[in-house]
């Protein structure tokens, strides 16, 4: 659906996007991740044909964004960051304008508009002025606009920016629903979002693409952060040393002690689940263990590590 090769954007004295290449297949939900100012919006603006690239090419559904921009734009439903809308229009009026602009005619307009209103649950506010809408509704109107001509590809730039937690959740549900019919590229800096809805993650930092994996792969890649949490009670003072002796244990730290219960964090080699060995040792030594938990690393850790290691 999207095919990007060596796409670059240079501004005077600095390059905002540097030689990135990736592709997105039909039906995928791809998260586009990166810190603020990493070049996410610039890349998206190039994909949507709003700004031309300095070099490199991008194709949307086989159409080049620069030389066949009208055909490429026809395939994209785009919702820019902060959802700019005309405040002096009513919701229905705005959607009608956008539908006509995107080449819909006659009955199709009415049908598609009703579907979009239904899908984004904004039927009740269709006669309101856009200026009177709350942030959440504005977002939905923006999404309805992106959906109105049923484009095969949706590009959403930070769609949950500024929404409250319950709105974020319902927005997420909506995206999942949309994923059945559309390919979605969604840019964000909220990791939990990506983890929950995306099939694949592209990580961009300082204009360079530094990751292209599934969220799961990405976390698995993180060797350093696999830990076992342990709550233990014993009169034995050598717990720390004893556990350290188990092969595969890299480091044991005593986090805190409360009423005799010791909270310990055991770092182990990547994916090396040593819970059995610890329990085994515990039963031999008569330790009381009330919790033992193997913690998979989160995407957040992977992300932070990747972004930081690149910039250092």
């Amino acid at each position: 659906m999207i095919k990007v090769s060596n796409l670059s954007k240079k501004y005077v004295g600095k390059s905002a996007v540097d030689q990135i290449s990736f592709s997105v297949d039909q039906g995928e939900i791809v998260g586009f991740l990166g810190p603020n100012g990493a070049g996410k919006t610039t890349t998206i603006r190039m994909l949507t044909g709003y700004i031309p690239p300095t070099s490199g090419t991008a194709k949307i559904g086989g159409h080049d964004i620069f030389s066949e921009s009208l055909l490429a734009k026809q395939k994209i439903g785009y919702m820019p960051e902060n959802v700019p809308l005309y405040d002096d229009m009513r919701v229905r009026e705005y959607l009608l304008f956008r539908a006509e602009l995107k080449g819909l005619r006659g009955q199709e307009i009415k049908k598609n508009m009703n579907e979009a209103l239904e899908l984004c649950s904004i039927k009740t506010i269709k006669s309101q002025m856009i200026s009177s809408l709350s942030k959440g509704f504005r977002q939905r109107v923006g999404l309805a606009d992106a959906l109105i001509n049923k484009p095969p590809l949706l590009i959403l730039d930070e769609p949950t920016n500024g929404l409250d937690p319950s709105q974020i959740r319902s927005f997420r549900e909506l995206i999942k629903e949309l994923a059945e019919k559309h390919t979605i590229l969604i840019s964000t800096h909220i990791l939990s979002e990506v983890e929950l809805i995306c099939d694949r993650v592209l990580i961009i930092n300082e204009g360079k693409l530094i990751g292209n994996n599934t969220p799961h792969e990405l976390s698995e890649k993180m060797r350093s952060s696999t830990t076992i949490n342990l709550e233990i009670k014993s009169h034995d003072n050598n717990i720390k040393e004893d556990i350290s002796k188990i092969s595969g244990v890299k480091k044991v730290t005593l986090e805190k002690e409360e009423n005799g219960w010791k909270f310990m964090r055991i770092r182990v080699d990547y994916g090396n689940d040593l819970r059995e060995e610890i329990m085994h040792l515990g039963s031999k030594r008569d330790w009381l263990i009330r919790e033992i938990h193997f913690q998979r690393s989160k995407l957040e850790d992977a992300y932070i590590e990747m972004v930081q290691s690149k910039s250092n």
């Binding site: 949507t48 709003y50 009208l70 055909l71 734009k73 820019p80 700019p84 956008r98 602009l101 080449g103």
Partner: peptide, 14 residues
């Protein structure tokens, strides 16, 4: 100023 130029120009228009 309000950014609608972006939605306008990313629609299939010249």
């Amino acid at each position: 100023k309000i950014g609608t130029i972006e939605t306008l120009l990313t629609a299939p228009v010249k």
